[in-house]
């Protein structure tokens, strides 16, 4: 029976530990062991029965998908926020500095013509895009 347990552990090895994983692993082990007992009752040796149960189990990826979907959806939105938070901060600081630079040149060299608003509008697209990315819009 130890073989079953080892196999189940092997199947679940690359799934991150969680209470849910523990529970489903325990359940599968218990059910497979019961299947092995049933097969042995029909006259199979323990080894044959164990092998049959393991082979018939099927593709573990279905379960992985279900377990993965569970954890995945919650993290992704938060992840996006965290990643674009930095981009947003950088874009705000960057555009402020660029705009300040244009204002300085404008008023220092040509105070009679107000032209700094034109590059300012162009630069403002940068933090605007980052803001919407941060909100999670495509």
């Amino acid at each position: 029976m130890k073989k079953i347990r080892t196999h189940v552990e092997e199947w679940f090895r690359d799934i991150p530990d969680s209470e849910q994983k523990q529970a489903i692993q325990e359940e599968i082990t218990q059910n497979l062991e019961e299947k092995v007992f049933d097969l042995m009752r029909t006259g199979k040796s323990e080894e044959d029965a164990t092998n049959k149960a393991i082979v018939e189990f099927g593709d573990i990826s279905d379960i992985k998908l279900e377990l993965g979907v569970n954890n995945g959806s919650g993290i992704s939105a938060k992840d996006v926020r965290k990643r674009f938070g930095l981009h947003l901060g950088f874009s705000i600081w960057g555009s402020c500095l660029i705009i300040a630079f244009f204002i300085f040149i404008n008023f220092y060299y040509s105070p009679d013509t107000i032209w700094f608003v034109y590059p300012t509008f162009a630069v403002l697209w940068w933090p605007l895009v980052m803001f919407y990315k941060w909100l999670g819009w495509k």
């Binding site: 497979l32 018939e56 099927g58 593709d59 990826s61 377990l67």
Partner: peptide, 17 residues
């Protein structure tokens, strides 16, 4: 028709969710 155990437990997870 025989259901594979792997499929069965995936369905349990889905239905429970």
């Amino acid at each position: 028709f025989q259901i594979k155990e792997a499929t069965l437990y995936a369905v349990f997870q889905r239905l429970e969710r």
